[in-house]
């Protein structure tokens, strides 16, 4: 009876989602998925080939072993620097996000704008500004030397400290914003209730604030760690060869040494490391909602 009348719009509706997703899906498939798969193939090419002679597919899984053997220090360093930077971002970002979300009152919006303000100017220009601040002849190094916190021939620039600090600086807003989003949803009365139930400020934080802001912590650490581990701008501008990260190696393998199979193998190792770490972390943090 009325079945046909009702079925007609339903059929059109069934087509709609595919029309909506098709353009974006194609773009991501052609310019992301295909290249990544191709990169995977490249990582197994004959390492003895060259760009001019072409590469043969020899399923050389040995490329991975060779790459890892040659560059494991950079790999470890990347994970260490990114992990350290993420931890520092969390330690610095949490109080800032908490103050903005719970204590700022009418200053909240202004403070939020100040957090994102660095984005208003170029990332490279700001990193170069750090180069000026940390320079051997700069005021900061001079001050620290006068205070005997830095040896007379000590440096700030071109040290692991400078690289990690640069990473922290660059990715701190990515930590603060998701933390803010989840702390802002936190009902202030819960903190009062905890205090009323004999919880010290520290216990309130441990048992109420922190668990409730966990989604923000997870999102923030991921948004900080993932780009930090692959970054090479900070290592290149603020560090030296001794502080170079895996991103620097991949970049030069592609653009300077033109060793495509090795560059591809390194890229895949990096992606795999990130995906494994992220999956383990998200599982352990107990929130899957991000994926």
């Amino acid at each position: 009876m009325t079945v046909t009348a009702a079925a007609r719009p339903a059929r059109a509706a069934r087509r709609t989602p595919y029309l909506l997703i098709l353009p974006g899906l194609l773009w991501l498939a052609v310019f992301f998925a295909v290249p990544v798969v191709q990169l995977g193939a490249t990582s197994l090419y004959d390492p003895n080939g060259s760009l001019t002679d072409g590469y043969a597919m020899t399923w050389s899984f040995g490329n991975y072993a060779t790459a890892l053997a040659a560059y494991w220090p950079q790999f470890l360093r990347s994970l260490l620097y990114a992990g350290l930077a993420t931890a520092i971002c969390l330690a610095l970002g949490y109080p800032l996000a908490f103050v903005i979300a719970q204590r700022a009152g009418r200053w909240r919006n202004l403070l939020l704008i100040l957090v994102v303000a660095p984005f208003f100017t170029s990332f490279l220009v700001r990193t170069l500004a750090w180069k000026a601040i940390l320079a051997d002849t700069g005021w900061l190094a001079g001050l620290l030397r006068d205070l005997h916190l830095l040896a007379p021939d000590g440096r700030l620039l071109a040290t692991p400290f400078a690289v990690v600090m640069g990473l922290v600086y660059n990715f701190l807003p990515f930590m603060v914003l998701p933390l803010y989003a989840s702390l802002q949803r936190l009902d202030g009365r819960l903190l009062e209730a905890a205090a009323d139930l004999y919880a010290s400020p520290l216990r309130t934080f441990r048992h109420v604030t922190l668990p409730l802001s966990m989604p923000g912590v997870v999102a923030g650490t991921l948004l900080t760690f993932i780009p930090a581990v692959g970054d090479y701008i900070n290592a290149a501008l603020l560090g030296t060869v001794r502080t170079s990260m895996i991103g620097n190696v991949i970049d030069s393998a592609f653009l300077v040494r033109l060793d495509y199979p090795q560059a591809a193998a390194l890229s895949f190792l990096l992606m795999a490391a990130i995906l494994v770490l992220v999956t383990v972390y998200v599982r352990r943090a107990g929130t899957d909602e991000l994926l």
């Binding site: 991501l28 310019f31 992301f32 295909v34 290249p35 990544v36 191709q38 990169l39 490249t42 993932i226 780009p227 581990v229 692959g230 970054d231 090479y232 991103g247 991949i250 970049d251 592609f254 495509y260 560059a263 591809a264 890229s267 990096l270 992606m271 990130i274 995906l275 992220v278």
Partner: peptide, 16 residues
């Protein structure tokens, strides 16, 4: 793409 390092994004696309 958000979880992929930019070096990988850039280099793989270059290869394509």
């Amino acid at each position: 793409p958000m979880a992929t390092p930019e070096v990988v994004l850039g280099s793989s696309l270059l290869a394509l």
